[in-house]
Design a protein around this nucleic acid. Structure first.
Lengths: 221, 221
DNA sequence: GAATAAAGTTAAGCTTGCTTAAATAAAAAA
DNA sequence: TTTTTTATTTAAGCAAGCTTAACTTTATTC
């Protein structure tokens, strides 16, 4: 049986394997889901009994194809809700994540398809993440890299931001640095790994922690 | 602490006291909520400890003013979602109830106010029920009576329908008998208490059970 | 490779919101 | 008023999803 809790586990396991390229570790999942590692072990057994993950003691979990399918369904709901709340109901960039986090578990396939249609089958959510399609495919994403890997002189486009830290997103919106902004890296300090970027003729200095949450693609001059 | 279950109890207690004029009985609540009467007694204790209802053994429950306030908040969410799903996302009259039933528990006050604004602060939901306002007041409703009390020769307007029976609502929509339709009662059979009504030059025969779910107001010829 | 640290697992127990079955109170009928 | 029926409550127990504490396995360091 699918429950809210299980949906959240599947989603988190999926995102972890995307980020790390390997199996999701119990400690990381426990941290992301704000539960104890004991809870992770508990759920690992249940999900594996249902055939949604493969699980071997001390070896972490991995989504099966049916687990991945289930994860993508939830992620699709989340990202479509985020875009709908922002575009239609004019909620701000930073507010939509938490609201979508709740709605995603209580939306029928019928309704989410209506929302998809209303938005004209969009490919990306307000933070630049691809929206899984009804058929399970995922829109092709540009080659992105964290801004922290940027170097002086690079010309870039801001294409994605982690959606969980609403304070950061609020700050970026306030200073006018929004998705799809084009900019140049004008400085990089070895001292604290902070970057200075230039966009709209403004100079903005961003700490290492911030540049790790911002993803960019290179553009020709 | 407010939970989904408690919100559903409060809503159901509220609707019951509106319908019956007196305290909600355990049997009726158990039936409406699809739980055992033992569960009702259980929850009665919890809600009463939280000051949301007054409860005396064997005497049923009654909402306190803070309980009523909480109930109206949920009902407001439910009815605004129903209207939004119908008007904006073009879901049908009969589909919106079940979907709203889930969304109502997962919608922040901020979001529901956005929806309210988007719909231009409406007074009634798609089934003719008044939508409680943010300040807790309820739009004035016309004097309604069940169609089952109609008599031959009356001129009426269809102003409300119970929203729970989606099959009935689908049927009414199919035959074109929708909210705000004007009609005349042209016959009433003593045999089975069924009514014949005339609207748009069509004659429609409705069983007693159906006429009990439809609410009307009298109009001058 | 042994010692230590870190990560993961097991066991026991908690809360919520239910259930069924038995007991009791209230209401209706005789 | 007594009996019978109906409504309500109590008691014991269950499943889900957690917790903490103790323990075991794996990884790291010297």
């Amino acid at each position: 049986m699918s429950t809210i809790s299980k949906e959240n586990y599947l989603k988190t396991i999926f995102n972890n394997s995307i980020d790390s390229g390997s199996n999701a570790t119990a400690t990381k999942l426990a941290n992301d889901l704000s539960v104890s590692t004991a809870a992770i072990t508990d759920m690992a057994k249940k999900l594996s009994e249902e055939g949604l993950v493969t699980y071997e003691k001390y070896r972490g979990m991995e989504l099966t194809s049916s687990g991945e399918k289930a994860a993508l369904k939830i992620i699709r709901r989340h990202r479509l809700w985020e875009l709908f709340l922002k575009e239609v109901l004019e909620m701000s960039w930073s507010e939509v994540h938490d609201e979508a986090e709740k709605l995603e578990h209580h939306t029928s396939e019928f309704l989410i398809d209506k929302i998809d249609m209303y938005l004209n089958y969009p490919d990306f959510d307000p933070h630049g993440h691809p929206i899984p399609r009804k058929n399970g495919t995922i829109p092709k994403t540009p080659n992105v890299m964290p801004l922290s890997q940027g170097e002086k002189g690079m010309f870039c486009e801001f294409v994605r931001v982690n959606d969980k830290d609403s304070e950061l997103i609020d700050y970026l919106a306030k200073v006018g640095f929004i998705l799809n902004s084009k900019f140049e890296v004008v400085d990089k300090l070895a001292f604290d790994k902070s970057l200075s970027i230039k966009f709209n003729n403004k100079i903005l200095s961003l700490s290492k922690k911030i540049t790790e949450s911002i993803f960019i693609r290179l553009v020709k001059n």
